[in-house]
Design a protein around this nucleic acid. Sequence first.
DNA 1: CTGAAAGCGCTTACAG
DNA 2: CTGAAAGCGCTTACAG
Lengths: 338, 338
Amino acid sequence: MMQPQGRPRPKIDDVAREAGVSRGTVSRVLNGGHWVSPPALAAVNAAIKKTGYRVNPHARNLATNKANSVAFLLTETHDRLFADPNFAVLMRGAADALAEHDIPLVLIMAGTDDEQRRATDFLTAGHVDGVLLVSSHGSRKGVIADIIAAGVPAIACGVPLGFEKKMGYVAADDYQGALELLEFLDNGGRKRIATITGPQDTSGGIRRLEAYRAHQGEAFDEALVAPGDYSRESGARAMRELLARVPDVDAVFAANDLMALGALEVLHDAGRRVPEDVAVAGFDDISAASAATPALTTVRQPFDRISEEMVRLLLDVIAGKNHAAITIPTELVVRESA
Amino acid sequence: MMQPQGRPRPKIDDVAREAGVSRGTVSRVLNGGHWVSPPALAAVNAAIKKTGYRVNPHARNLATNKANSVAFLLTETHDRLFADPNFAVLMRGAADALAEHDIPLVLIMAGTDDEQRRATDFLTAGHVDGVLLVSSHGSRKGVIADIIAAGVPAIACGVPLGFEKKMGYVAADDYQGALELLEFLDNGGRKRIATITGPQDTSGGIRRLEAYRAHQGEAFDEALVAPGDYSRESGARAMRELLARVPDVDAVFAANDLMALGALEVLHDAGRRVPEDVAVAGFDDISAASAATPALTTVRQPFDRISEEMVRLLLDVIAGKNHAAITIPTELVVRESA
DNA sequence: CTGAAAGCGCTTACAG
DNA sequence: CTGAAAGCGCTTACAG
């Protein structure tokens, strides 16, 4: 039943009057219907429908001291949010998981200092019950510290560097995933395996490089390492570097798919065949990975599991439980590029 | 001053006691500081700092009957949000404009029926004071109708088809912009100008095609029109169609840049030189347009102006003024592709 | 199972 | 300029 235009919005007392019960009884059916007799329940439900009553969230939030919403905090600029498909996948997963509990997801960006200040204000003001923290670059540590200091429940995606003990998180097993991929390249007979790294103030970027270092062991050669920042362009740039420095490179492990895609382009333009001359592999398994030519061999991050677990852990923390850390295994996806 | 962990959050009475004034006086300084004597004001400010007081938004919202936030409603799936850079630009602009009024922007997606239902619930429950409506496909008319029926202030980006009279909006001048571009192609000596259309349940898609139709006049030929949906892939598909159907096509006007980029790729693969053999032009001027090879000639939509005006109009409607419609001129950006 | 009452933390006329 | 008081619309012990 649509609430008629103009008329004052019905409140709980209107429903109570209509149903011939007290305000408390109406509230009880609103909150689960426990300890309410069947006839009362029926009367109230009918009255709600008849009046078009909808609970006033502000009043409820004030009374319960909860916000009934959760924030998705992205410590990135708007541009990167839209450039990296992982964020979209993560956000949709979180929104879906939260929807089952009827909790809206509020997206907050903190890419600039100014945004960061506003985000902190917003999050610590009580607007939300908790926050899902995504992509915590070192440069944004202030937000994390503030959130923790304010006692706002939060769960990070990936290891929140420097705050591992104070904030729960769920992360893919970057190290094992990368190692598995590198061994696969080995088995393919590759001799000169280079890597394009992710940002080194990010747990994923660090761990994937550690795996590379461990895998190379004695053979580790600084010349085979080119830095990237997870953007496609940085992958292309790194690949050009690598090609100039190590002409006989025969495999490249990019720390994410976007950079692998950039590398693919550069190799194509340079006339190197993939995978014949150079094997290329990424990390993430974004949808563009399978669509690429050649289709990209990569390590799949189980983003749906990740977002699901993040929501679960966050609701736990909000409910008063201690935070926890979860590591989720990745999966090697072999396609054409390696 | 950081609110100490654990300790109960200070409330307005704590500040009042600390400052030696009444609760009303504290509230007055919180709300602008009018009608407060200088000494009282100083005392209150000091007390606020000392106690670490922050206003409880739920209590304030209940008392004022306002939410103090605005929604950015995207009637698209998560995927498209991240695929189309225009949304990012629009959202950042809106967030910035709103930030000046200290109003947070809440992103709401309504791509699926389920999301649409939840979005409507959320928006009409009083969680936000108004909504910025973006990309109103015909398939999502229900949300618009519900928002209007519930009397929630809203401003659309682009003409809200079927609701032009009931909802304010700000739109780029699609018709003039497209016409200007087509005339430019004319002047370049192009004889067989094709078009790749946008979705026809969208005001931009419709108006840009109308301009094309008007421009062609007598020469209008159905074979020169290929449908797209604003995605890059659809642009590529349309270009292939066009090439097969009209081998002598010498110019293509794509209804947005993403599709123009797709067309560029196909032409390149087909061995057609751009702009020598075929001129290509888009609409929007996304950042990838200038980065493309060749750089894309296009019609710039002034997204910063658009988001700014949307916010202005929305705040007006929230303040009780009548809604208004604004059309903003576009700008022809000539680069290499045409 | 139900109602009367207190309380959530603010704002805002109103009287002074 | 300031304080006392009512009110915003809910929830939740508490007594019955």
